[in-house]
């Protein structure tokens, strides 16, 4: 049962023993220092009001930097098989999909309510409605155009 994957890289000694890849101590210490500094910055930034979305973006950027540092050095992704990085990254990608697609719904609800109000569906006689409502249609077209723009920024 050999390591049938010639593209793998990382440590390769095909002997019976595993030889560890020991990270030098200074790297760990520098990582730690970075984390502490970034924590101080992010707490400090929260006292300054830069506008809520800027504050949020800043907090997320700092958190992501910290996360990358932890993953790269404490969790050894920097020196490990690239595949492990891909595996971990996939979780972020799919989490992104989850959040983004759910937001297509939650931040765009009721976008067409204005249109619907102007052209209520006539369930008992759906086709008669279409001819009876020409006067309502132009008004309806004007209102939601703005609504769509306002609501469609997810």
């Amino acid at each position: 049962m050999a390591h049938a994957d010639p593209h793998d890289h990382g440590h390769h000694s095909h002997g019976p023993d595993h030889v560890p890849h020991v990270t030098p101590l200074p790297i760990y210490l520098k990582t730690f220092a970075t984390l502490v500094v970034l924590t101080v910055i992010t707490v400090g930034a929260s006292y300054i009001n830069l506008g809520t979305s800027v504050n949020l973006a800043l907090a997320l950027i700092i958190a992501t930097t910290k996360a990358c540092v932890v993953a790269a050095f404490f969790m050894h992704l920097a020196s490990d098989h690239k595949f492990h990085t891909a595996v971990f990254a996939s979780s972020i990608v799919f989490l992104g999909i989850f959040v983004a697609f759910t937001m297509f719904d939650t931040s765009a609800r009721g976008q067409f309510d204005a249109q619907k109000k102007n052209r209520p569906a006539q369930m008992t006689d759906p086709f008669a409605k279409a001819t009876a409502a020409p006067s309502a249609a132009p008004a309806a077209a004007a209102a939601p155009a703005g609504a769509t723009k306002a609501g469609a920024k997810p």
Binding site: I97, D105, A108, F112
Partner: peptide, 22 residues
């Protein structure tokens, strides 16, 4: 298959935007 789940929710009140994309 991860990008289509909203097709179970067309009548749930989810936004028209989401329904169209899904």
């Amino acid at each position: 298959g991860f990008l289509v789940w909203g097709h179970h929710m067309f009548t749930s009140g989810q936004s028209e935007l989401a329904s169209t994309i899904f």
